[in-house]
Structures are given as C-alpha cells and as structure tokens.
C-alpha cells in the first residue's frame, strides 16, 4: 500500500487534486457573482491578491498567521462589496461588454497598484504548516501537513458556502434574488442588498484561495492570481458558470489535467490543456456540463 502511495501516479493525483481544489474555490466564487449579477468578474483574482497583500504582510509586524488570514478575508469582502456598489451598479442594464471592460480595467489597476506599493518581487509568506512530505515505512507519501491544510480549508469553505445557500434565510434570499429579482422584490427581499452581499461573499471566498496560494510555494506577487483566474474561469465555464457543483468538479478536472501535462510533457503546455478541455466540453454540451436547463442565458 505504501509503495502505491509513493508512486509517481499518486504524486500527480495528490498534487493535481490540491491545485484543482484551489481552482474549484475560485471557480465557485466566480459562479456566486455570475449567478447574482451576471457579471464575469475578471478582477476576482486581483481583488483577492490585494486583500492578501494587505492582510498577510501584517505578519511582518508580528501579528499571528491566523489573524492575518482573517484580516485578508475581511479586506477582500469589503473590497468585493464596494466594487459592486461603485463599479458594477452603474452598469446594470448596459450591454454585457461594458462590465467586462470595466472589470478588466480594474484588474489592470489593482496589479499596477500592487506593484507600485509592494514591488513585483515575489514575497514568501511563512507557511502555517510544514510542506515536507510524510513518510510511511521509509517511503515518501506525497502529502504534507500543508497540502492537507489546503484541502481541508478549501473543502470546509465550499461546504460552508453550500450550507449557507441551502439552509439559511440569507441563502434563500440570495438564490431568489438571482433567480427572480422582480418577484423577490415583490416579496420584500432587498434584492440590491443581496447583490452586494453576493459580491462580498464571493470576494471572501476568493481571498481565502489567494491566501492559500500565497502561503504555499507559489508566493505572493502582483500577478500571482492571473494563471489561477484563467484556470478557474475555464473550470467554471466547463461546469456552465451557473452551477456551483459544476465549478467545483471543473476545478478538479482542470487541476488534475494540468498536473499530468506538467508531469508527462512540459509546464509550458499546461495552459493549453485547460483550453482544450473547455473546447471539448463545449462541443459535448455548449451550455456547460453541469447546467440543467438547455437555454443558456447570454
């Protein structure tokens, strides 16, 4: 058994799963925003990156790791809510190209701002758990405390989000506002507040993903979420952008695919792998693999 766990195959599966679950988390955050406001937030990664910079560089001042995580998430959520109010709200009812362009502008602004304040050099955040692989009977098992922390935290967040949407009053109102805004207003639901809450929640989820990424080997630099965003968008699009479950599944598919391409071919080809999967998925089901209704809202 331990020989099997030490095989290169298992190494790739563990690594691909760990990376994929980050994509799942970001993809989930994209789906939350898409469902509530029908905007694909191109600045999602950059907003999370800024939040991570503000929160995690507090470690330098001797504030403990977990407090910094909390600061990052709170900053991320605030940024999400403010962004919806200031940049997105004026664009409701405008052509769908307009919010895309604005959020791309915001992406560029945040990355330039981060580089201006914190430089473009990669920063390493002290990891909360060891990245050294476990050993069992002298064989390496390709799991470390950090990878387990990464997977457990990501899954915990996803389950909490699922529970929030499924079992709480707020979740019911969020879903109703996304599905039928006018009817929801007639029932007294404060829909515009729900849109802001949707962005806030989503940005919080994104910030956690960015914190995990920055704490690992990848480190923190202004463009560190670019690749993650692209892979996560593909994950969400494979799932159909409407389905939280599809986003999570899509993230794992992309993560594993990339890992295997990296292992057996070259890391430079990995980004192409995601595109090919998206193209195949679109050919099988243009509305997304996990979308129930056949009419795609465009």
């Amino acid at each position: 058994m331990s020989v099997f766990l030490s095989s290169p195959l298992m190494h790739n599966i563990f690594a691909g799963f760990a990376q994929g679950i980050i994509y799942s988390l970001v993809a989930l955050s994209l789906v939350i925003i898409w469902q509530s406001t029908h905007v694909l937030n191109f600045a999602q990664g950059a907003m999370a990156m800024i939040a991570t910079y503000i929160g995690m560089t507090e470690i330098d001042r001797g504030i403990g790791y977990w407090w910094c995580v909390i600061i990052s998430v709170v900053v991320g959520m605030t940024l999400g809510g403010v962004t919806e109010r200031v940049l997105i709200r004026p664009l409701y009812g405008k052509p769908e190209i307009n919010p895309i362009v604005v959020m791309i502008g915001f992406l560029g602004f945040l990355e330039a701002l981060a580089a201006a304040i914190w430089t473009s050099t990669t920063r390493n955040i002290a990891e909360p758990f060891s990245q050294i692989y476990f050993k069992s009977n002298g064989h390496l098992v390709f799991l470390s405390s950090f990878v387990i922390f990464q997977i457990v935290l990501a899954m915990g967040i996803m389950l909490s989000v699922a529970a929030l949407f499924r079992f709480t009053k707020l979740g019911l109102q969020l879903r109703a506002s996304a599905l039928a805004p006018e009817v929801s207003r007639l029932l007294g639901v404060r829909v515009s507040r729900m849109l802001t809450i949707g962005w806030t929640l989503s940005a919080g989820v994104g910030a956690i993903a960015a914190v995990i990424i920055a704490s690992g080997n990848f480190g923190l630099f202004p463009a560190n979420m670019d690749g993650i965003f692209v892979a996560s968008f593909i994950a969400a699009a494979v799932g159909g952008l409407e389905s939280p479950l599809g986003a999570v599944a899509g993230g794992l598919i992309i993560g594993l695919t990339e890992q295997f391409i990296v292992a057996y071919w070259s890391p430079d080809v990995a980004p192409l792998g995601g595109i090919i999967i998206l193209v195949i998925a679109l050919m099988i089901r243009p509305q997304g693999l996990f979308t129930k209704n056949t009419i795609r809202r465009v």
Partner: peptide
C-alpha cells in the same frame, strides 16, 4: 425552488 422554499421566502 421548492413549494416550501417559495412560502418561506414569502414569510421572510
């Protein structure tokens, strides 16, 4: 949404 979820939304 289910019947009961619709009703809960109405009562919220």
């Amino acid at each position: 949404l289910t019947v009961e979820q619709n009703l809960r939304l109405g009562a919220l």
